[in-house]
Structures are given as structure tokens and as C-alpha cells.
């Protein structure tokens, strides 16, 4: 059955409920199409409240630090940046909730915010970096166990312009923690390949080369001069810290 089918009352019901629950159709036309509810209109419309409440709850739980900062600063930043509520409403409209797990609903937020900043330059960069960190931290925590080295699943390489992990920790202690000064750094967010804990690691240049080789990607030109014995040592350090699993050597 498709909600767009015209074959039955149930299909017609779903066809009306989808836009209504998404906030794309008002109550009056919905009830004109479906007929009056058996109880009050207030009871019927409570489901719209619940649907919206669920999405905001998911955003709160996935992006708590970002929400804290956004709510705190929404009155001091230019109006174009908008409120947390307005931003989430925009996000829902652009990315209707899909995917079995509620976390899936939040997946596109970092990219959404990056694209939004193209349109609204007043939106701080730190917002999308916070969102990205929150998201990949969750991803690393829940990634399947059997995905090899797990790049972009269990293991993420990021360069942020702010010390995001420290800022997230600070916001956890104090919702008024000031936004730190920019401090660009490369870091790895990963779940230890065996111990199941999400950790951070700051790789050296040799470490980045070791990661690139493991992932099978081309080593950037500025890093090609790193001596190979340094890369071997860095690879061993990455294994020791649980970023990577031991290298599997083919049997002779």
C-alpha cells in the first residue's frame, strides 16, 4: 500500500496524516478530508504536538552541547542566525525524519549547518564543528564491530578550527562556558578497536601518513617527505592506542 494510493479509506488516511504530522498541512483541511474525529479536535491535534516533540527530543539528545550554546547566544547574534527552534524547523523541512533509528534523523545536521553558513555568514563556524563532533562521537560509539579499520564508521579524522572536545567538556560542566579561541588541530575520534570506548587522539604528521596508507588514499604532497621508518613507528603507536587494529599480514 502506498499512502498515495487511492484504493481505500486507509490509504487516504495515511495520505492525510503524513503532511499533517509533518506540519505541512493544517488541521482543518486534514479533518475535512478524513471526517471529524470521534473525540475532540484537541485530542487529534495532540499527535502533531507529539511528532514535533519527538524530533526536538532527538536533537536535544544528539546535539545537547550545540543546543546549549545556540540557546545562550540566539539573542546576541544577528537575527538571521535564528533561534534554535527556527533552525530545527528549517532542518525538519529540509530533512524529513527518515531511517529506522531516531539517530538517523540527526545525521545530516552538520552538513546542513555548513550549507546554512554559506547562506548566513553570521552563523558561527563553531556551531557546525560542534554538530559534527557530536555526530561522529555517536557514530563511533555505535558502529558495527566488524568493519575492518572502520574509517568514517568507527574512526573519524577531523580538522576543527576550535578545540571542540575541550569545549564540549566545558559546556558539560558549565552551560555559560565561553567559546574558546580558535586553535586548529587535527584529531581522531574513534572507538578503541577492542575496548569499546570512544577516545580522542592527536596524530603526528607521520601518524597522518600511516592513516592515509591504511585507508588506501593518496598521501598529500606536503607529507610525502616523512621518512618511512617514522611512519612505521607512528603506525605502531596507532595500534597501541587502539585507533587501528593490528595489521594483518598475508600468509607466506
Amino acid at each position: 500500500m502506498s499512502p498515495d494510493d487511492h484504493g481505500g479509506a486507509l490509504a487516504a488516511f495515511f495520505a492525510q496524516m503524513k503532511p499533517y504530522l509533518l506540519g505541512q498541512q493544517a488541521l482543518a483541511p486534514t479533518l475535512r478530508a478524513l471526517g471529524p474525529p470521534h473525540g475532540s479536535e484537541d485530542d487529534f491535534s495532540f499527535y502533531r504536538v507529539l511528532a514535533e516533540r519527538n524530533l526536538f527530543k532527538v536533537m536535544l539528545e544528539l546535539y545537547g552541547p550545540l543546543r546549549t550554546l545556540w540557546l545562550r547566544r540566539q539573542d546576541e547574534l544577528p537575527a538571521a542566525v535564528g533561534t534554535w527552534r527556527a533552525m530545527v524547523d528549517e532542518y525538519i523541512a529540509a530533512h524529513p525524519p527518515a531511517g529506522r533509528h531516531p539517530n538517523c534523523f540527526g545525521e545530516a545536521l552538520p552538513e546542513f549547518l555548513a550549507a546554512r553558513r554559506e547562506r548566513i555568514p553570521e552563523q558561527p563556524v563553531v556551531y557546525e564543528e560542534l554538530a559534527d563532533f557530536c555526530w561522529i562521537r555517536t557514530r563511533a560509539h555505535q558502529a558495527p564491530d566488524d568493519e575492518g579499520d572502520g574509517f568514517d564508521s568507527r574512526l573519524f579524522v577531523r580538522q576543527y578550527s576550535y578545540p571542540i572536545p575541550d569545549f564540549v567538556a566545558a559546556l558539560g560542566r558549565d552551560s555559560q562556558a565561553p567559546v574558546p579561541e580558535p586553535q586548529p588541530r587535527v584529531l581522531l575520534v574513534y572507538r578503541h578497536w577492542q575496548q569499546l570506548q570512544v577516545r580522542l587522539f592527536h596524530p603526528s604528521a607521520a601518524g597522518l601518513v600511516a592513516l592515509a596508507r591504511r585507508q588506501g588514499v593518496e598521501v598529500p604532497a606536503p607529507l610525502q617527505a616523512v621518512p618511512s621508518d617514522h611512519v612505521e613507528i607512528a603506525d605502531a603507536a596507532l595500534v597501541e592506542h587502539g585507533v587501528l587494529g593490528p595489521r594483518v599480514t598475508a600468509p607466506a
Binding site: 486507509l10 488516511f13 495515511f14 511528532a51 532527538v58
Partner: peptide
């Protein structure tokens, strides 16, 4: 879920014969 959109809630069906069979 309707048409790929998941509302992350347990939503009631119409108590109808058609919904029973479906």
C-alpha cells in the same frame, strides 16, 4: 512510518475492518 517518513512514535490506526485486514 508513512512513505518513508518516520514519526518515531506509536501512532493509532483507525479502528476499521480495512485496518484489521491490512
Amino acid at each position: 512510518t508513512i512513505g518513508g517518513v518516520n514519526f518515531y512514535d506509536l501512532l493509532p490506526l483507525p479502528f476499521s475492518e480495512e485496518a484489521v485486514h491490512h
